[in-house]
Structure formats: C-alpha cells, structure tokens
Nucleic acid binder design. Structure first.
Lengths: 253, 253
DNA sequence: GGTAATAACATGTCATAACAAGTTAGAAAA
DNA sequence: TTTTCTAACTTGTTATGACATGTTATTACC
C-alpha cells in the first residue's frame, strides 16, 4: 500500500469492488438474486466472514439487500441526493460509484420570460442564456436540466464544454464563488417533451426541482428547472425539531 | 423505553444501545477516548467480534471514530446543519390564511412489517399502531398520512382527537420531546387507494414523503408515509454552497 | 538528556466453527 | 391432486483464534 507495487487491498474490499462493478455493469438486474454467501466463498476462495464484510458494505451503499433464508439481491439503483449543502448531482452520484454524464441539447440566447426575469433580477432586454441538457446515470437518462444564466455569466458558456457539471465551471473557470441556493421540489406529471427525453410515458411522475443559485454576494447567477424521473430519484435530509415551536399550537404534521 | 417483556435483542445491538446512550448522555466528551475493544469485551463479557459489530454500527451512525493503534473516540456531536426547519404543515398553511383540517380514516393495532420493524426498532410481536388520516387544505384533500407508532406511544392515541396535528399531541399531552427527523422525498404515481382518498386519478403524481421522527434521546417514535397531491404541494428550502468542495474537480451539477 | 530499539497495547483483517432463524423444494401422506 | 412435513439451503449471530499494522510507553545505550 506504500507508493508503488500495486497497493494491497484487503480481500473484502476487493470482493466488494468486484461485485459492485458487476452490479453497476448490469450483470445482476434490479431485484435479481445474486450468488449465495456459500457460492461467493467458493468462487473467491475466502472465508464467510470476508464475504459478509463485503456484502455488508454493499448493503450499506444501497447496492444490495438481503433477506434471511432467501438470499442476496441486487437493489434497484436509486439516485439519492443529500440535502445538507449545495451538492452537485454529479458529485453526489460519483461518490457512490455511479457513472454520470450529461448531453447538451441546446444553448442559446433568449428573451427571458417574467419568471426568469424576476429570479435573475434582470430585464427582458438584458437577454439571458438558456442551457438545456439531459443527464445520465449509468447511461440511462435521469433528468432534463433547463438552466438560465444572466448574460454576463451565460455568454462565457458558449465556448465551454457543457457535458460536465456547471458549478465547478462557474467557480473554477469563471471565478464565481457560489453561495446560497433556494430549492423547491414538486411532484409533477412529465410533459411530452420531457417524457421523450427521459424515455418515459407522458404523465408519469417526475420530481420537479427549481433551484436559484446565488454567488457569495447574493447575486443570482443560475436559475434552473431540473426534471428528474420519479422512479430513479429521491431527496433525503434531516431536520431538527425546533424547541420554541412546542409552545405554540402549530407544528408537526 | 421498552417497558414490558424486553424482546431479546442481539448482543451487539444491546451493547451498541448502551454505548450510544452513554455517549448521548455525555459520559464521553467529544474526542475523549473510550474503552478499548479488549476492555469492552471484558465489561460486557462477549467476544471481540460482538464488540466490533456494535462499534461498527456506532461508527456508521457517526457517534464514534476509531484509529488503528490508538483506540476508539467519541465523535463531536453532529451539529446537524439543518437546511431549514421543516415548517409544520398546519403552521405553514395557517400562516398563509389557509384552513387546514384532518380526518381520521382508521386507527388500529397491527403487526408491523419488516420495514416498520426496522425503522421503529421493534419486533413483529410488539405490535404497532397504524393511523391513517386524510388532511385537508381549504376543505380539499391534500395528503394521505399513514403513521406508525410503537405501542407505548400508539396505545395512547386511541383516546385522542386525531383530527389535528400529532406532533404537539405527542409533545404536550404525552410529554415526548421530539428531536430529529429523517425525511426523504420521491415523486410517485398515486395508487388506487390514495387516488380515491385524494380525489385524483390513479397514476397521477404524488409527492411521497417518508419521515422517521425521533425523540430527543434518538428513540424512533413515529414513522410515516405522507402522500401529497403533486399539484397542491411544494417543498422549499435553502442550502449553502460548501466552500471546501471548490478545490475538487467535481461538484456543481 | 537525547535517541534508538523493543515490548506492550490497540485496531484491522481473516480463518474456522457452531448454532439460530427463515425460506423453499421435494418427499410422503391424505 | 392437494396438503403436510422435513431436509436442505440461506442468512443472522456469536465464539475462538491468529496474524497484520499502527501507536505509544518503556528500556537500553550513547
């Protein structure tokens, strides 16, 4: 594990990585039964505890689930985004070992509608840049992203590779330090255009995310709609019960 | 918290709960060294693997961290950077001048399925109380709430008015101080039952909210599914861009 | 007193083994 | 043919044991 000489990985991590790769490559379809612990012991020539340790990690990462007496099954990959901080989709997914990519559908200068004007604090005559992309998770379309940028930001994007994340681009190449984002979530039916891009039926549920991102000076720099497939996306977060609310008549559900 | 016949818990879970309680009570200050595995083996009279399994779970919950050669230490209490308080539904709506109400569909004692067992940390034979309600906004159904309570909480609900919020009921009448809640959001199609209760078409999008609420001692007290009409509900919150991530090559969207 | 070596301590990895508990396929009985 | 029972299979828990690796205290030497 010191610099050269292929770092020796513990067996359980090697097994975990092998199985994870197989799952992500689709060797095991969602809900398909995987080899038993006994079979894995034999095929990897290791003890059961080593296999279990690998399986336990895979379970913790949500890639498998196990039922006593039945066996181990591949989970349906589900993108889950933690809402603790403004974290990009790609970053969140890559940290889980999923492969992400994005495909630019279009980029153009537009006359912003009222909503975009209000959000970006601009006028119609200022113009704005609209970027539409489809994002992929493990090569399957998962979201259609429609982003609007004020011209002083947007005009720099025409010459950039938009097949990857925009946030680091804004920060690292345009030197725009990002700050707060306002986010809203709704469940909506997919319209025909989105349904087509996401390879689903019109009317099926999507998670409709609106996000307005500011720089650290609170200037709006990016207003976007993200339409995620409902069956492939989940938001997750923690909240605390605020103490002072207990004195009121409200609160809870 | 389990008053009657304490169901037999695996040793590692008992040890984990004991240590967790000690940590949360402040017996070990943040970063303070905890007993070694060897000492825990002796004090609990179990094998090392049983101790390690308990420690592994505590580590996974963020309560401890371990360093090879040094030992095991209490973590700094997660100062949950709460995105924003989940504003109580009723409060949020009432502050906007909307009229809210809830109608009890059913309350019954059930044998909890595996998911509910896991979430409420109970066994099937413990039973649980299931409460199903429809919530109204300005007299139109907006959500179907299915809540599960462990028996020591749930049995008190049979004699209560469930036409109003449960959280203040739990806090003010049952003296259960509420703490953290884990929440996840998904867009899903409404099944026939929910569609009927919400007066919508089967398959239309709903916002599927899963919420596990704990008391301040981290005991789970309420596990619920909230199915909101997609066309009548929106989640909104703020997040900050985390500074340290800008140094990476990933991030953004 | 400072430095190096060694021993003791502590967690990390892995093996073998056994029993508990849940599921299912196949055999036997009705 | 259908139902019941049992053996085989499968995961869950726990024990004992050994070696690897990292840290720290102690001892020996200069």
């Amino acid at each position: 594990m010191k610099d050269n000489a292929m770092p020796h990985q513990p067996l359980y991590l090697q097994i975990k990585d092998t199985l994870k790769k197989q799952i992500l490559e689709g060797k095991y379809a969602p809900y398909q039964k995987m080899p038993s612990e006994s079979e894995l012991m034999n095929s990897f020539s290791v003890s059961r505890i080593t296999v279990r340790q690998a399986l336990r990690d895979l379970h913790r990462e949500g890639l498998i689930f196990t039922t006593q007496g039945k066996g181990t099954f591949a989970s349906k990959p589900k993108a889950m985004q933690e809402v603790q901080h403004l974290e990009g989709f790609e970053e969140a997914m890559n940290s889980k070992g999923y492969e992400t990519s994005a495909q630019l559908v279009s980029i153009r200068e537009i006359m912003p509608n009222k909503d975009v004007q209000d959000k970006l604090n601009i006028h119609a005559r200022d113009g704005a840049v609209e970027v539409i992309r489809v994002r992929y998770l493990n090569r399957e379309p998962i979201s259609v992203d429609t982003s609007f940028f004020p011209m002083q930001v947007g005009r720099h994007l025409f010459s950039r590779d938009l097949g990857r994340d925009i946030f680091p681009l804004l920060e690292n190449e345009l030197n725009i330090p990002l700050g707060r984002a306002d986010i809203s979530l709704e469940a909506r039916p997919a319209d025909a255009n989105i349904a087509k891009l996401l390879q689903m039926e019109t009317g099926e549920p999507i998670m409709w995310v609106q996000r307005l991102t500011h720089d650290i000076h609170s200037n709006p720099v990016d207003y976007e709609y993200l339409a995620f497939r409902g069956d492939s996306y989940k938001y997750h977060f923690h909240v605390e019960r605020e103490r002072t609310r207990t004195s009121g008549k409200q609160g809870g559900q």
